[in-house]
Design a protein around this nucleic acid. Sequence first.
RNA 1: GGGGCGGUAGCUCAGCUGGUCAGAGCAGGAGACUCAUAAUCUCCCGGUCGUGGGUUCGAGCCCCACCCGCCCUACCA
Length: 597
Amino acid sequence: MSSSSRHILTAPAWPYANGPRHIGHVSGFALPADMFSRYQRMAGNQVLMVSGTDEHGTPIQVQADKEGLTARELADRYNRVIAEDLHGLGMSYDLFTRTTTRNHYAVVQEIFKGLYDNGYIFPKTTMGAISPSTGRTLPDRYIEGTCPICGYDGARGDQCDNCGNQLDPVELVNPVSRINGETPKFVETEHFMLDLPAFTEVLGRYLRGRQGEWRPNVVKFALNLLDDMQPRAISRDLDWGVPIPLDGWRDNPAKKLYVWFDAVVGYFSASVEWARRSGDPEAWRAWWQDPDALSYYFMGKDNIVFHAEIWPAMLLGYSGQGDKGGTPGSLGALNTPTEVVSSEFLTMEGRKFSSSRNVVIYVKDFLERYDVDALRYYVAVAGPENQDTDFTWSEFVRRNNDELVAAWGNLVNRSVNMAAKNYGAIPEPGDLTDADRALMERSRNAFAAVGAELGRSRFKNATTEALDVVRDANRYLSDQAPWKLKDDPDRVRSILYTALQVVDDAKTLLTPFLPNSSQKVYEMLGGEGVWSGMPEIQEVSEDGGPDYSVLTGDYDTRARWESAPIRPGVPLAKPTPLFKKLDTSVVDEELARLERP
RNA sequence: GGGGCGGUAGCUCAGCUGGUCAGAGCAGGAGACUCAUAAUCUCCCGGUCGUGGGUUCGAGCCCCACCCGCCCUACCA
């Protein structure tokens, strides 16, 4: 079905390095992006999947202070934790890096300069707070006081936790520093603004051109924002961030680029870093400048504005294509997103995930107790694709037991077991009946159907259709009942051959969701080597900077999105179960863990 | 306050541009089988598609209002 090989950039959102990831996080960006990427690679496309940890900004600084660490130390810790979470999930990143690399700084500054030179960034004077005793800038979140809106007296400078409104610290009644209790002094401070109104026209054309392609809620949401575009601050009074690359600013220890600005550039900077590490520093251009290249961004719905509005604006501005024109920056014009795929939110047993209330299950803890494929499957078939969905332990156990173990695992087990026991090998079929041919044709045809759903990031539909093949195969075995045909060995061999061919097809269809168990089935049926590649953590170095670790891998594997004929004669051993059946008592155990400090 | 998404069988959810669209899985009931991790297969039960209007020959699917849940965002100050 897919005609020619294309370059496809997969851009999963950058997790913020302030703590471990829970399954709500990864259900929104990481797992969908990985399933999409694995499918696209199998379909023969050249996928580049890049991301990393987002490590700058006030929340990191605040938390670091609280723990007596530097921001860098805190970021180092959670970069490692998150990389291990994603590694455990089998996320097939070509590069998972971080925003504290020298490469990232340089690329961010290049994008800034391109925008600046084209007139899309301008300075503006606003009011900001400093600490009278130290003379240092006091970031918004370090200030608390009485909320001017609801009267709550624990409001922070940037937001009131009681009424949820965003605030300007200048508005707070009786503001005090959270560091030492002193009263901050408000002084004039200069910041840079991104001129978003200067992209209204071009973004409007861009977004209207995406109608019918993107999920409608994303386009609608973004188009609606165009009605009231405001310049957005891109610098911050904080020393933890990327320096502003202009004379007089570059060395200012207290003014850095606002974290969101550097974070969205990460998709691009990581591509550049990947190219350099691959040995061809220009290789990124195939994904960012070829007009036929495609790019897919995966994130939670709270991030639509950055990916459907601000990042396209930055790319257009850098490329000299905003409403005020300009010329492309020194790297040349860059592609805007082909599609912004936004997920809704996962809830936990009917409630919002909450680390502080312990309404949460972290990736690490999950993977210590359960198989990664069980989680991947759950997110694929029951994740927050079109609407908020609830994760419940009972549903997780049920899906695992009824669908993975009883339907798919059992099909593999009964088919391989019968063949192994009777022949010790994939049998040579006799004459095939209509029923045999119909089932094999049915699973062959599923590649187009499931592939079409995967290409549109419709994972629920894709999983369901793949499972339908499994159910049909189980039905076929029950109908044909080879165990009753001891006196017709030809027929038995044909039946088992047919079943094994469909098992082989189904394992291919399920590979994007269940790469680990598909690898097992692949080996069970005589496959050798890596069927579906897994990421690895590598220590890397960078000229002039500290060493750090990245996630990368070789995903140029044997997996192809097509039915591959099985080979009679290949030896078969008695199969071992693909999945572990879970006792229903785990539901109570896990529920008891929730809300226990 | 503004914008967006969702509200479909007991449960979790599919239903594209309006006309076999009233579905799937699970749960519940009955039966078949024994190759398989007591798994599998068959049949049955089950919904006035949030509420109230409207458009249409015909509406979960379009329009209006309202109710509920969630997301983003603003302001009176």
